[in-house]
Design a protein around this nucleic acid. Structure first.
Lengths: 211, 211, 211, 211
DNA sequence: CATGAATGAGGCTTCATTCAT
DNA sequence: AATGAATGAAGCCTCATTCAT
C-alpha cells in the first residue's frame, strides 16, 4: 500500500515540478514564444516527459489557470458563505481574498488574465473553454451574490448585480494587466498593490448608495 | 511635384489598404494565428508587397495600435484644453471621447488592449515599444491632468492623479477585454456599451469627494 | 497570355520533379521510412516547397498511384472498346496492356501494389481511399467485362466474372510483389517478365472452357 | 531439473502471450501504427517486458511470420512425402493444406504476406531476412517438387517448376492480400474462401497438359 | 513597384528503447 | 523477472521572410 501511495505522491510531485517550470517560462515568454523544449529544460526533464503529464502544450497552459481559478473560487465562496457579515464588509473581505490569491501566485494570476484576454482563448479545446468558463462564472456569480445582497439591503446602487460583478472583475484584471504591462514598457517600480487598493476603494465607494 | 505628391498619396492609400485588412484578420484570429498570407489575401495583395510597407509582422500589428492611440490622444487633449469646463464635466467628456474612439474602430481598440496586455509586447522592437509607451503616457497624462485639476479644486479624492488615471485606463481596458472575452466564452448578447457606462459612473462617483 | 501558360507549365514541371523524386525515394525506402526531407533533397528542393504542391506526405504518396491507375484504366478501357476482337484475343491484349503499364513505370506499379496491400491504406484520407477504390473498380470492371463476354460466348468457364477479374488482378499484383520481394531477399536475377507471361498463360488456359 | 523445465515452460508461455497480443495489434493497425505500448497493454504486460522476450519491434513482428511459415512448411512437406499419390491429387492436397494454414490463423497469414510484400522487409535484420528467406524457399521448393513430379509424368506443362511454384505462391498471396484490401476499401462481404478456391482451380487447370 | 514561389528554421509531438527499482 | 517512467531522436509541417522576374 505504501508503495502505491508513494507512486501517487511522486507523480503529483512531478506534475508540480512541471507546472512550476511552465509557470515561469510562460510568464517570461508568453504562450506562443514559450516552447515545450524551454519548459522541459526549465523543469530539468526531457520534452517527452511533459507529455506523460499533460496532453499537449495548450492543456499545460490552461492547467495553470484552472488551479488558480479554483482557489479563487473557494475564497469567493467563503466570503459568500459568511452569515453575519454585512455586504460592505463582505466587499472588503472579497478584496482581501483577491489580494491573497494574487499574492499566492502572481505569475499565474497574470497568466490567467493573459489567457482570458487573448487570442489563445480561441484556440483552446472546447472542454477547457467550458471548464474555464464555468469556474469564472462561479466566481463572478459569487461576487454578484454579495453585491445583490447589498442592493437588496438598500446599500448599493440599483444596477444589475452581474454587470457590477463583471465590472469588479474587469477592474481587478485590468489593473493587474496594465501594471504588468507597464513593467514591460519601462521597468519602473511596482505600484500594483497600492493601485489595486485604491481601485477597490473607488469601486466600493462608487457602488454605495449615498444617503 | 504633382507626380511626387500623387506617389505619396498612392503609397499612403496602399498602406491603408493593408492596415484595414490586417485589422480584420488580427481581430479574427489574433496575432499568432493570423498569417501574413491571410492578411495579404484579405488585402488582395501578395505577401511580398506587405513587406514593402511594413518591416515585419510585428510592426504591422503595432501600427494598428499606434494610429488609434494617436486618435485617442487627440481626443483626450481636446478635453484637457477646454478652459471653461469644470473637472466633473471634463470627466464625462472624457468618457464620451473614449466611447467615440471605441465606436470609431472597436476592433482596433480591442487589438490595442490585447497588445498591451499580452506577451506580444515583449517581442516588439524597442522603437515601437518606446513609441507606444510615449503615446500611452501622453493619453494617461492627459487624464491625470484632468483628475489633478479636480483634486486641486477639492472635488476629487486626494490620491496620486497618475494612479487614478491608471485605474481609469485599467477599468476601460478591463471592461472591454472582459466583454470581448465573454463573447468568445459564450456568444451571449453584447452588453459592452451598457457595462462601460455603468463602470464609468461608478468610477466618477468613486473619486468624487463626498461632502 | 504566354506568361500565364508558362506559369502553368512550370508549375506542372515542378510537380513532376517532385513526383519523380518521391517515386524514387518511396520505392527505395517505403512509405514510412521515407522522409519528406529525403524527397525534398532528392528533388533538390526545400521541404517546405513540397507542401506547395501536395497537402501532405500521404497525398504525395497516393498521387503516384493515382496517376498510374488512371493510365492503367485507359489501357483497359481501350481493350474493352475493341469491337471486332474475340474475348481470348482481348485477354491477350489485356496482358500486353498490363505489361506496358508495368514497363512504363515499374517503381510506381510496385508502389501501387504496396499501397494496396498495406497498412498505409488504413491511414489514408477517405477522399483518397474513395478515389483509389473507384479507379481500381473501374479497371477491374473492365477486365470483368471482357471475361463476361467470353463467358457469354461460351468460351470461358461459368464463374462470376468479377471473381475472375479479381483473380486476374491478384495474380498480376501477386507476381509483381513476390518478384520484387525476392529481389530484396536475395538479389537474384529478375525473372519478372518471364514469370508474368507464364502466369498469364496459365490463367488464360485455366479459364478457357475445354471442349 | 523440474524447476528448470518449469521455468522454460513459463518463459515459453509468456512468449506466446506476447505473440498473441502482437498478432492482434499488428493485424489491426499494421506494423508502423502499432506501438509497443499497444502490444504491451493488449498482452497485459509492461512495455519493458516485451524486450525481455524480443530484441525489438521488428523481431517481434517477424517472429509471427516465422511460426506460420514453419507450420506451412510442415504441411507442404507432408504432401510432398506422400508416396502413392498422383501429382494432381497432391496439388489438391496442397490447396487444402494452404487453406488449413490460412484458417488456422488468418491474421498471421495476412501479416506474413504484408511483411513479404512491403517496405518492412528492407529494414529487417539480415539474420531474420535469411531465416524467412530459407523457410519460404523450402515451402516453395516443396511445391516445386510436386509440380516437377507432375511435369516428369507428362501431366503438367513443361515450364520451369520453380517459376510455376512462384506463380502458385503469388496467386495465393495475391488473392489473400487483395481480398483483405477490398475489405478495407469497402467493407463488403468476404468472398475470400470462394475466390481462393476458384483461383486454385484455374491454376490447376492452367498447368495441366491438355491431351 | 508588385509578385508569389521558394526557402528553411524551428515547433510540437510520438514512440522505440532503456534502466533504476 | 517485471515494471513503467523517462528519455531523446526524429519526423511532419507551418509560416515569416526573401528575391528573381
Amino acid at each position: 500500500m505504501g508503495i502505491q501511495e508513494r507512486k501517487v505522491r511522486e507523480r503529483e510531485r512531478r506534475r508540480q515540478q512541471i507546472i512550476v517550470a511552465a509557470k515561469r517560462v510562460f510568464s517570461e515568454k508568453g504562450f506562443n514564444k514559450a516552447t515545450m523544449e524551454d519548459i522541459a529544460s526549465e523543469a530539468e526533464l526531457s520534452p517527452g516527459t511533459l507529455y506523460l503529464y499533460f496532453k499537449n502544450k495548450e492543456e499545460l497552459y490552461a492547467s495553470l489557470s484552472l488551479r488558480i481559478l479554483q482557489y479563487l473560487n473557494i475564497r469567493v465562496q467563503h466570503v459568500n458563505d459568511e452569515k453575519n457579515m454585512d455586504p460592505e464588509k463582505k466587499m472588503i473581505a472579497l478584496q482581501e481574498a483577491m489580494f491573497d490569491v494574487y499574492n499566492f501566485d502572481p505569475l499565474t494570476i497574470i497568466n490567467l488574465f493573459h489567457l482570458q484576454s487573448s487570442e489563445t482563448l480561441k484556440n483552446l479545446s472546447p472542454e477547457f473553454l467550458t471548464e474555464i468558463n464555468e469556474l469564472s462564472r462561479k466566481s463572478i456569480g459569487g461576487v454578484a451574490n454579495i453585491i445583490d445582497e447589498g442592493i437588496k439591503k438598500g446599500l448599493f446602487i440599483e444596477k444589475h448585480p452581474t454587470a457590477l460583478a463583471d465590472i469588479f472583475w474587469s477592474l481587478f484584471s485590468g489593473v493587474i494587466l496594465w501594471e504588468a504591462s507597464k513593467n514591460i514598457l519601462d521597468e519602473e517600480k511596482d505600484y500594483l498593490k497600492n493601485t489595486l487598493e485604491i481601485a477597490f476603494n473607488i469601486f466600493l465607494k462608487g457602488i454605495k448608495k449615498t444617503p
